[in-house]
């Protein structure tokens, strides 16, 4: 063991130690603090909603708040029941999902399994284009193009209804449903399909009995993401859902989903007043709902991802 006995500390060797590298340390601190800051901002959203919204849920007991049908923010004393907002949200998100899922998944299957590359490219380009449309533009289109049709078709006084909003929302959730489902279908290993073809299946049988079931969790995540989008969308429903505060009984009633309720009420609410707090409480409930939907989607996607990766 020659070198262990030999005298250490050759001039060069000793410089291995004691370099403080202050610049480096400061930058690392900055990066760390910045990470903390970003997280504070993100958690701050929840904190603000809780702080501004919880008082309203104390003032009006939560079951009355959720299930009360009367929203009289400026009467004395005010009454806050958001059931009609909530039911409206369910209507528009429900209609949107009902329309967008079969169409979106069908299109995704076609793009992933059947379409020639050129056709797929063009369709995807158009879908991408649609996903870039701001929601206010979709609201505008619903307002001037779709609502007159709806009015005439159902012989209504106004074409601004839950159905109109639902149709526009379905268009807006299509891009995410199509692209996530398509990814899920493309991730199905070719061996699975080859095996099925080997057993004498037709192309459709392979799609229906092999590809779609294998990609099912990814497709359901796509659906969840579409639902999340429909629940959270604001401008479109503000512009085309009709804005009525009464409890909707049919899809062709004018209605005010939760997001639209916040958007139309916040301008008139006195800062810190009961209506202001009630609107934050609606925001809190929206936050929880979308978080829940997105968490499920993320979870399902995770499972799907693991399914085909062999250890």
């Amino acid at each position: 063991m020659a070198f262990f006995d030999s005298s250490p500390a050759t001039g060069a060797g000793s410089s291995l130690k004691g370099r403080p590298r202050w610049g480096e340390r400061i930058i690392e601190k900055v990066i760390f603090l910045n990470g903390v800051f970003a997280i504070i901002v993100l958690l701050g959203v929840l904190f603000i909603l809780l702080r501004q919204g919880l008082p309203a849920l104390v003032e009006t007991p939560i079951h009355e708040f959720l299930f009360g049908t009367k929203w009289y923010p400026v009467s004395e004393p005010p009454t806050f029941g958001i059931a009609s907002f909530f039911v409206s949200t369910l209507w528009v998100a429900g209609i949107s999902t009902l329309l967008a899922v079969p169409v979106g998944v069908g299109a995704a299957i076609y793009l992933a399994e059947v379409a020639p590359k050129k056709v797929a490219d063009v369709v995807k380009l158009l879908v991408e284009l649609l996903s870039g449309f701001p929601s206010v533009v979709m609201g505008f289109i619903g307002l001037v193009l779709l609502s007159p049709w709806v009015r005439e078709l159902f012989n209504l006084n106004t074409g601004l209804t839950g159905l109109t909003a639902g149709i526009m929302l379905s268009m807006m959730s299509l891009p995410i449903i199509v692209s996530v489902s398509e990814d899920a279908l493309r991730a199905v290993p070719d061996e699975f399909k080859q095996a099925a073809y080997g057993l004498g299946s037709t192309r459709w049988e392979v799609i229906w009995h092999v590809s779609v079931p294998s990609a099912l969790s990814g497709i359901s995540a796509a659906v969840m993401l579409g639902v999340g989008r429909a629940i959270g969308e604001t401008m479109t429903v503000l512009m085309v859902a009709g804005g009525a505060l009464a409890m909707p009984v049919s899809p062709v009633d004018p209605m005010t989903p939760m997001t639209a309720g916040i958007a139309s009420g916040i301008g008139n609410a006195v800062q810190g007043g009961p209506q202001y707090q009630a609107l934050f409480a609606i925001g809190l409930i929206l936050f929880v709902m979308t978080l829940f939907v997105n968490l499920i989607a993320a979870r399902v996607l995770e499972v799907q991802k693991r399914k085909f990766t062999r250890e």
């Binding site: 959203v45 603000i48 989008r229 959270g232 997001t259 916040i262 929206l286 936050f287 978080l291």
Partner: peptide, 11 residues
């Protein structure tokens, strides 16, 4: 990233 934009408006 999936929280509705109106909620960020309130924030």
């Amino acid at each position: 990233a999936g929280v509705p934009s109106i909620v960020f408006g309130l924030f």
